[in-house]
Amino acid sequence: MTENPAPGTPEPRIVAFCCKYCAYAAADLAGSMRLSYPADLKIIQVPCTGRIDVIHMLKALEEGADGVMLAGCLEGECHFLAGNLKAKARVGQVKKILTEIKMDPGRVEMFNLSSAMGARFAEIATEMAERIRGLGPSPVPKKPKKAAAA
């Protein structure tokens, strides 16, 4: 893919939409297990990855995220039956759109895990962070980070 990364912050910004029934709990477990994973992930808890639509992923990229990942339940084990399968299809749609607009489709990815997989969460977080570092910063101009609320 042809991209023109602008000189920007070296730290990638990855937005991770995590299902509360699995990935979010797995991230919690990873913390309890004292497993370390890259700090590049900004985790957003969602009731189900099926809630995440194409627009949420595109907006994250438009707002300056270098990568977006969805982490949902194992296939066949969605709390809402098929939310993770819908999310998988939508990630596919976003990849197609990114290809069409000459961005690397690897900037978005779907992962599946269960709430007991703390170690797997640390693994996918590392995998995604390494991938995004390899791709370099998003060519989208960075917006300044918002200051934390006092």
Partner: peptide, 14 residues
């Protein structure tokens, strides 16, 4: 919404 976002992304990149 999706098309506006995709087109914005394309042009922001350039």
């Amino acid at each position: 919404e999706v098309l506006a976002s995709a087109l914005s992304l394309y042009h922001l990149n350039r």
